[in-house]
């Protein structure tokens, strides 16, 4: 039982975007976040090209005579996606460079540990006492110092 083409392709493109977004939110490792960003980008590009598709049409390239009644697909979204893909790889390379820099500086790519380090650094720079929970009685540290829970998270 064949499923209609439009449902299939839209489901594929939306699925790609959804998987990318879930991956980005659920992954702790920053490199995995970058990979998932690439997935979401591919899904977005696919959606754009889908918006220019026409039934029973040919690619927008003139090769001899076009049969009567046959049209061409929309070239404008294709041109936009063309540039978007190349920009994507440039941004990806920049993100990889930033990851290398982060790992050199902090020794980890775990999002949670990095966030804790960032808060700690900010507090220290501003001269504020480290953030502690106010629900517990004074003098009792509710959780160990952030530096203690820094470890290599699996990718």
């Amino acid at each position: 039982m064949p499923i209609p083409l439009d449902t299939l392709f839209f489901a594929g493109a939306l699925g790609l975007v959804a998987i990318g977004v879930v991956g980005m939110l659920a992954s702790r490792h920053l490199f995995r976040v970058l990979l998932c960003l690439g997935l979401a980008e591919a899904g977005g590009n696919l959606l754009l090209v889908l918006s220019g598709y026409r039934w029973d049409s040919v690619a927008p390239i003139l090769t001899g005579d076009l049969p009567v009644g046959v049209s061409m697909v929309d070239p404008v979204p294709q041109a936009l996606v063309l540039t978007s893909i190349v920009i994507g790889v440039g941004m990806e390379a920049l993100a990889v460079a930033l990851l290398i820099r982060i790992r050199r500086a902090y020794g980890t790519l775990d999002g949670h540990a990095l966030l804790a380090r960032l808060r700690e650094d900010l507090d220290e720079r501003l001269g504020v006492a480290p953030d502690r929970s106010e629900d517990l009685p004074k003098g009792h540290a509710p959780f160990p110092a952030p530096a203690a829970k820094e470890q290599e998270v699996n990718p």
């Binding site: 083409l5 439009d6 392709f9 220019g52 598709y53 026409r54 929309d74 404008v76």
Partner: peptide, 10 residues
């Protein structure tokens, strides 16, 4: 609309 895009510019 899938397959019958309005294509104002295209």
């Amino acid at each position: 609309p899938f397959g019958e895009t309005p294509m104002v510019l295209g």
